[in-house]
Design a binder for these strands. Structure first.
Lengths: 398, 398
DNA sequence: AACTCAGCTTGAAAGCTTTCACTTTCCACC
DNA sequence: GGTGGAAAGTGAAAGCTTTCAAGCTGAGTT
């Protein structure tokens, strides 16, 4: 029996190490007293070395079996898989990430998960991530650019494969995100875009959405339309305002001074600005609120002023959150799918990971005008022309 | 000038390596042709070695400066920090985690971020995590035990320091979480507890919360109280039911058969079960819904049956979500703070990381009964005794 | 001037996986 | 039975940090 035959047999029995006793022992002697490792802790967790020993193969082979990076003959392959099964071994994502320069992590930076629009976005992204074996790390910025940069910098050292950002504001993120790209990570911006953004993105058609809503109101006979926008340093706010103005222009209407109010994207903002609008003369007969929380605040203000929606004033929100169904009256709103937004972003990020040099993609999702009970024709004395009759609960895709 | 003096000076000049040209070069020669690394990619990112070279110190010293693990004399310390500043160096969390057997990650497993109760929990946990330099990895289980186990197994290989779980159901998680504990990770269960749970936990006082709500209704004169519970395999559902029953017992009232309905924790469940309740004879004059979504569904059903809340029937929800303020009528509810729940859980997890052997903690948060417009005394003919007058918007802590 | 001791620094190993270059095995064919 | 080439398998290095034991320095002591 020659050496290689012995080796071969020994491998079959999983005892390779026996054949270099001198080397092994002296190595052990050398390092035995230099042990600096941690005690206990993870030592009971299986690692690749243990699998290799159990299966009687080399480390490399185990890796190849696990990753399909090379052909491995069936018997060996089986022994490896069996060893994995028996030990319940799972590869260390840390070691793998360290070696591959990239982990199965998708980082996501959003303004605030407490804003009811964002959970859907997160869920969409998480589902796509999970389905592809990725995990989602979530960070909230509170729309604070400083916090955003902190997150951006800190997360990078985990070497995520991708990064999905809803920018806190119009600040230029090029410097930060560029370092991700250099490190080979995909970066996708969604919902709003920062200044100078030239990477992948997923947004909705804010302009058309707002335009459709305004057109619908105009179609009902409204001539005194007001708008409460979100913070105008956000691109989505800007676009919604643009759409609103476009609809007015197309109907040869003017945006009366003061009929445009800028608010924060929350109830308080909507409440305050609606109070202002309701004091105007003539009072607007319809309000487009640039998100549902603003609309909610508007509804409170309207109620508080002893006015009635939709008889005295029509109201349309934006986003189409669940809460629009539980208000009284139910809120009409420009619906967009946060889930789809998040899912598309995650998918785009993963695509980018797979094809680093594919052309940049800008996905623009559609909105859908959902008419519920908060809109009606204007009071008779306020309408310049007879209102056009519309079915209720009509949906208009933009 | 002797060697040590030269070395000393050389260190001042950051040129240590120059002194072993032979060794260094032969080492390079030896390894130069065995290069298996990746090309480019991260090679431009600073690492500790670069910092050490720049500062003219050893790797160990850099580490000590960065971690405060040993005293380092001021001049060296300064040079290290300066090099860090100049390069913008940030330690690799992967390498650090690999070496320390633990990362700055907190894993969180929740049923579904789309359920409006959970974003607050997540936010609370994330804020505490972030404030302590940890990141949050989020996973949704959809109340699916299989998915939960998958997440649990997969996340472990990232070696998170802690794990916060809202169990999907009553399934025993001991096996899975035990392996986290063995790996040195802290595990905290919140909101509901799995079978045989003997680790740290944060819950709310569900029993008292439900009991207070029921007592309040009884105090208003109600004698026909119904309850719509959540899925009874969840401990929080069980406890709320227990509290409801306790209040009845204390008032010498009986829970009429059929007055207890079990529903899923959502609108549809509440709607369906309320329809059932409203058909009963006698019809209940008050309903305790064991979460706000159920209450929302109940409200829809009540409206659909042309009944009026609170005149015909009083309704109290549970959780005190924001949406309780925007319904008509505004919903009374047993408020609990999801943010506090999440924050406490994260804090508990971090405490556990710091003090592995501290005694197990069970934190139980208080609830607060928030009375709004959805409750009133029962219709005159349904009340056995004159109702007790209560102020509106009263808050009762439990 | 030699010696001690404390305190600062250092160098190397270890943690776990992937990947490359190389060796060994296998199989077909002469 | 031997040969050649393809396929399969191996072993070691590298990725970056932490941590230990040991080396060094310099002040204080005798």
């Amino acid at each position: 029996m020659n050496l290689s035959a012995m080796l071969s047999e020994s491998i079959q029995q999983g005892q390779t190490t026996r054949f270099y006793p001198g080397i092994r022992e002296s190595f052990t002697e050398l390092t035995g007293k230099l042990w600096h490792g941690r005690r206990g802790s993870n030592s009971n967790m299986a690692n690749m070395k243990k699998i290799a020993e159990l299966a009687g193969v080399s480390l490399g082979t185990v890796s190849h079996v696990l990753n399909g990076t090379a052909r491995v003959r069936e018997p060996l392959r089986k022994r490896v898989l069996e060893a994995v099964r028996v030990t319940g071994y799972q590869p260390s994502q840390l070691a793998r990430g360290l070696r591959r320069d990239k982990t199965n992590i998708l980082a996501m930076i959003i303004p605030d998960i407490l804003n009811p629009f964002f959970p859907g976005v997160v869920r969409g992204a998480e589902d796509v991530a999970f389905a592809n074996g990725y995990r989602l790390v979530l960070c909230n910025t509170d729309n604070d650019h400083g916090k955003e940069v902190m997150h951006l910098n800190a997360l990078r050292t985990y070497l995520p494969s991708g990064l999905i950002v809803i920018p806190s504001d119009f600040s230029d993120l090029t410097a930060q995100t560029e370092s991700y790209r250099r490190a080979g990570a995909a970066v996708v911006c969604i919902d709003r875009l920062p200044r100078n953004w030239n990477g992948d993105s997923v947004t909705i058609n804010n302009t058309d959405g707002a335009s459709n809503a305004a057109s619908y109101l105009i179609g009902l006979g409204h001539r005194h339309l007001a708008v409460i926008t979100g913070p105008l340093h956000l691109t989505n706010s800007q676009d919604r305002l643009k759409g609103f103005k476009r609809a007015l222009r197309q109907a040869d209407l003017e945006l009366a001074p003061g009929y445009m109010q800028e608010a924060t994207f929350d109830r308080a903002g909507g409440y305050a600005k609606t109070k202002v609008l309701l004091k105007m003369v003539p009072r607007p007969t319809a309000i487009l609120a640039c998100n549902d929380l603003i609309a909610l605040g508007a509804l409170m203000a309207i109620r508080e002023e002893k006015l009635h929606c939709p008889d005295d004033i029509s109201l349309v929100g934006f986003d189409g959150l669940d809460l629009t169904e539980t208000t009284t009256p139910q809120l009409s709103s420009v619906y967009q799918s946060p889930y789809q937004l998040g899912a598309a972003a995650a998918q785009l990020a993963l695509d980018r990971v797979a094809h680093k040099d594919a052309p940049v993609k800008h996905i623009v999702l559609k909105t859908e005008l959902r008419i519920r009970d908060s809109v009606a024709a204007p009071p008779a004395d306020m309408s310049a022309s007879p209102p056009i009759r519309h079915r209720k609960s009509r949906s208009v895709a933009s």
